[in-house]
């Protein structure tokens, strides 16, 4: 009689490396999307603030769509339909594109709130000193408004980092996808998901701590 074929094997130390690598990929895709998305979002926020009617009719509805449609649907739609318009992007690139737009749509409103938080009197004071529009924006609005909405932005960034798990549906082996692979092989979902959760925590926690420390320093 033939020996039974074993499909499953237990969790071993190499799998921890596998998860660690996947965590780095989560970090990398989040870092890229959040950085680019924040810059684009800040520009959209400025357009929303300055653009009045024109922006309300153009940019705002587009941002609303990206904020309102579940990320997983955006990812699947984009990954499958982008090739039709000649964009052959791999799962990573598709993930970055969608996460970036998603981040930008969230940051746009945060950024607009930041500009509003500075207020007209403060900006007039800056302009009365002879600052140009752009000097006022760079040296007064950005630091003051940025600090006002920094906690909100950290919330967006941490949210996007966790939402990057959804890129797993495209087959990109980030933390969640790696966990699923390991669960299939080891049949130990409890252990693996706990470990994956710990990795997510290890990525988020230093950011929230650092953010809290910054806020404390600014509050003096």
């Amino acid at each position: 009689m033939q020996p039974t074929v074993t499909f499953f094997s237990g969790f071993n130390i190499n799998d921890l490396w596998f998860l660690g690598e996947a965590a780095l990929r989560t970090m990398w895709i989040s870092l890229l999307s959040i950085s680019i998305g924040t810059v684009i979002g800040a520009i959209f926020g400025w357009i929303l603030y300055e653009g009045k009617l024109a922006a309300t009719l153009t940019v705002a509805p587009i941002l609303d769509i990206f904020r309102s449609v579940p990320l997983i649907i955006q990812l699947v739609l984009f990954y499958n339909f982008a090739p039709i318009i000649g964009l052959n992007l791999d799962p990573f690139a598709s993930g970055v594109v969608i996460l970036t737009i998603y981040t930008a749509s969230l940051v746009a409103n945060v950024a607009r709130g930041g500009i509003e938080a500075v207020g007209t009197p403060m900006r007039r004071a800056a302009r009365s000193l002879g600052m140009t529009y752009w000097q006022d924006l760079r040296h007064v609005v950005l630091p003051i408004g940025g600090r006002a909405v920094f906690p909100a932005w950290v919330g967006v960034a941490l949210g996007v980092m966790k939402d990057s798990a959804l890129v797993s549906v495209l087959g990109y082996v980030e933390l969640l996808k790696a966990s699923q692979i390991l669960i299939t092989r080891t049949q130990e979902p409890f252990l693996i998901l706990t470990l994956a959760g710990a990795f997510y925590f290890a990525l988020s926690y230093p950011i929230s701590r650092y953010a809290a420390a910054l806020e404390k320093r600014w509050a003096q």
Partner: peptide
């Protein structure tokens, strides 16, 4: 110009 609300840059 000096304003009613002094508008010092808080940062």
């Amino acid at each position: 110009m000096v304003f009613q609300q002094w508008n010092s840059f808080p940062h």
